Amino acid sequence: MTVYSIGDRARAFALQVASYRLKTTLATLTDEMASGETSDIGQRLQGNTQSLALIEARITLTQQFQRNASEAASFAKGIQDVLGAVETQTSTLGLSLVAEPFSETTSLLAMRADEVEQAFETVVSRLNGAVGGRYLFSGLNSDAPALTSGTAILDALVAETAGLTTANDVVQAVSDWFDAPVGGGGFLDVAYQGTNGVSQTISVAEGQSVEFGTTAADPALRDVLKGLATAALVGRGVLAGQYHEQRDLMQRGGQALLDNSSRLLAESARTGLTQQFIERAQAENSAADATLQTARNNLRIADPFETAGKLTQVESQLEMLYSVTARLSKLKLVDFLR
């Protein structure tokens, strides 16, 4: 009769393999119970994982759209905040320059000129604002400020109006400088550093995108700078010694600010519509993501009752293995030879 047997080392190795297999299965089933998802998605879907891959691709795309929408919302809010602040500041200042009578003193006129110049510097600084490292009013050149410094702009205008002796001439010269086309040596060449006629486009949902075309070169914002600069030139010594001409120049600048107020409000309203569009896109993205997540979970879900049954079975097998191992460890040669 042929007797088959294995040695002690082989038996120990076999027990180790069985113990490792059961412990691995136990850990896998425990993770499934904790997460609610199956560990072997291929077996769960019987090898047909294409539908799951498509759903996960759509989830990734939807979440990217949502990140884009969040970035666009921050960008739009930054633009809206600047437009609101500029409109509030310039409308109040314009009204005071037009309606407030100046006494016949040069000191009061100088004080008002300094106030206007500070306002000009503030507006330029606001138009050079950025959100998330992207400048708001530079068009596609969002990595650089929209404008040079307020001081540089006023210096250029002082040189442009040198030798003029009437408020009318100064107003016309300032207007021509701001309205000059590219290549004309005016605002677009000297002061503005962004792009013209091209909008920033951001995709915020599938088939939906928003455009940000508001720049510091737009007429509404350019005329704000024009009105402020016209009045601020008094503080730079333009028409020096001609009090009435200087007073007229400041009032003309204030009137320009008031006349431009409606265009600033219209620009703000357009930005508000963009914000509403982005909010709707964010809501649609959230709903789509929730639906896709549910569909993915339904494909990946593990049956808790089946998992619990397998877990109990593996625990019983592991206990039995430990029991057998404990008995084998107590065997003696004398007992075997009896």
Rank of each mutant, 00 (worst) to 15 (best):
T195H: 05
G186E: 04
G163W: 05
G183Y: 11
A229H: 07
I202C: 05
E160A: 15
S209Y: 06
L157N: 06
D218T: 12
S142I: 01
G185M: 06
N141K: 10
N260V: 10
V210D: 03
A162H: 04
E206K: 10
M250E: 11
E211L: 03
G237P: 00
V234C: 11
G235P: 01
G150N: 02
T230N: 09
F120T: 10
W177L: 00
Q242M: 14
T165Y: 07
G253F: 14
P219S: 12
V204L: 06
N168E: 15
R252G: 02
G237C: 14
G184L: 07
R134E: 14
G253S: 12
A152G: 01
P145M: 13
Q208C: 04
M250D: 04
Q172V: 07
A205H: 06
N141I: 05
R134C: 05
M250Q: 15
L127T: 04
A205C: 06
P219H: 05
D223N: 15
T151R: 04
Q246P: 01
G186S: 02
F137R: 08
Y243G: 08
V174T: 06
V224G: 09
E121I: 08
A162G: 02
G186I: 02
G132P: 08
V124R: 02
P145G: 10
V174L: 07
A130F: 01
P219F: 03
G186W: 06
N260S: 14
V123A: 09
G194K: 03
F120M: 12
P145E: 13
T230P: 12
D223P: 01
